[in-house]
Amino acid sequence: MLTKLTAAEAKMFLRDPGAPAVVAGIPLALLLIFGLMPGSREPSAQYGGQSSLATLIAPMAVAILLGVLALNLYPGAMAAHREKGVLKRLAASPVPPSRLLAAQLVVNLGAAVVAILLVVGVGRIALGMALPRNPGGFLAVTVLGAVALFSVGTLLAAVAPSTRAANGLGAAVFLPMLALGGVWVPKELLPPLLQHITEVLPLGATLSSLRDTAAGHAPHLLPLVSLAVVTVACSVLAARFFRWE
């Protein structure tokens, strides 16, 4: 039954022209626009002798992609199912509503995998971008960041009564993370206090750790602990407050 639900949710995701366009378009646009700027592909002392494309722009594209999926598209889809009574009908059927939640997670994580492969592939082939120097760490951080961000998204989906409310809550959470997460302004340019806040917020912690691993370093402990704490806390709260109708 999970396979059928996942297939149905995937069809709905693909039928909406906006969702695939946003998922693939935003990270690729960021990569190409900034990657074609003069000097972005050249080694820089500011980035440890590596290019800003590989160590800043590509990690930023991946982090923003995960944030859009987890904090905007996923909660909105779940809220739409609640608003239309789909969750209520499932609750009265032999199929547990949690299967729909799992199917939505599978679809969104699958979209994330495809988009990340596109970012890496286009960056490598079209722009000559170096691959992450710590590929295992980059993969692990991507997974941990996705889990943390989707746990936040699940909490938003748990309390949003309608699609409009979910979109509003998602924007209210996502936009401050962009501002304070080292996306709009690289964390090195932020005041010391805000640099610490950056590494605590889920989006900032993900981006910071992706940048570290892309440059060949091990991620710092604080962002990893933050992501783990956010995952546990938001998952517990989502399970406590999730409403099926």
Rank of each mutant, 00 (worst) to 15 (best):
L2W: 12
A8S: 10
E9C: 03
A10S: 08
L14C: 04
G18A: 08
A21M: 14
V22F: 09
L36I: 06
P38V: 06
R41P: 05
A45C: 06
Y47K: 10
G48F: 14
G49T: 11
T55E: 08
L56C: 03
P59C: 11
A61W: 01
V62H: 02
I64C: 02
L65D: 13
L66M: 03
P75E: 01
M78S: 14
M78N: 02
A80V: 06
A80K: 12
H81D: 04
K84L: 12
G85N: 01
L87I: 01
K88A: 08
R89F: 13
A91D: 04
S93N: 12
P94F: 11
V95Y: 05
V95F: 03
L100T: 09
A103V: 05
V119F: 07
V120I: 14
M129P: 07
A130D: 14
N134G: 06
L139V: 00
A146G: 15
V147K: 05
T154P: 06
L155F: 14
L156S: 08
A157Q: 04
V159L: 13
A160K: 12
A166G: 06
L169F: 13
G170P: 03
V173I: 11
L175C: 04
L175K: 07
L178N: 06
A179M: 15
P186S: 06
E188V: 09
P191Y: 07
L193D: 06
L194T: 10
H196F: 09
I197G: 11
I197Q: 08
T198F: 08
V200T: 08
L201C: 15
T206S: 01
D212A: 09
A215W: 09
H217G: 13
H217K: 06
P219A: 00
P223M: 01
V225M: 08
V230G: 00
V230Y: 07
T231R: 13
F241C: 03
F242R: 11
